[in-house]
Amino acid sequence: MTASTIKFVTTAADHHIARMAALAMGLSMLEAAIPSPLPGVKPGLANIVTLIVLTRYGWRMAAWVSLLRVLAGSLLMGSFLTPGFFLSVSGALCSIAILGISQYLPARWFGPVTHSIFGAFAHIAGQLLLVYFWLIPHAGLAYLIPIFATAALLFGTVNGLIAAHYLNAPNTGFETPKLTG
């Protein structure tokens, strides 16, 4: 019997993306255990990781981490291809699209808190659009927008502060790997 191994060539960047996505997934799992007063209102703790990755390693890697987290997280939760999964995907896509724009804001004045708030609003906008066009095509959905928007602003700010806190800490324990490829 010949042992055949399929070997993917992976780079240090790939490993780092995987590690970060795993960390984000851990936070998603943790969050799933927290009861929410309203379905759909979640702190989105995993986005803290996305924000840190965005600031340290750039948008491309943040997008990878965010989408991998959604995909692998849904497999772990057993929600892959359920409506909840598509809501997460749509939220994540909108949010990384906005981050792609907001990353160009001058870093002197705009920090992770800004990116976090923009991301949170984009996330909820993406989800509500999908809900409207796919699940509940009804104008009554508009009544919920203020609630979701308030939650987005609140949690966006808190997540941004946590991310900024980690980024500012002198020694966060993360070794910054030399990334090639």
Partner: peptide, 27 residues
């Protein structure tokens, strides 16, 4: 609150204003 930069405060304020406006309009 130290990591909040001036632009962040502006975004935060803008967010509050938007939400207030949306709430008044929609509710």
């Amino acid at each position: 609150l130290a990591p909040i930069k001036i632009g962040d405060w502006m975004v935060l304020l803008l967010g509050v204003l938007c939400i207030t406006w949306i709430t008044i309009t929609l509710w």
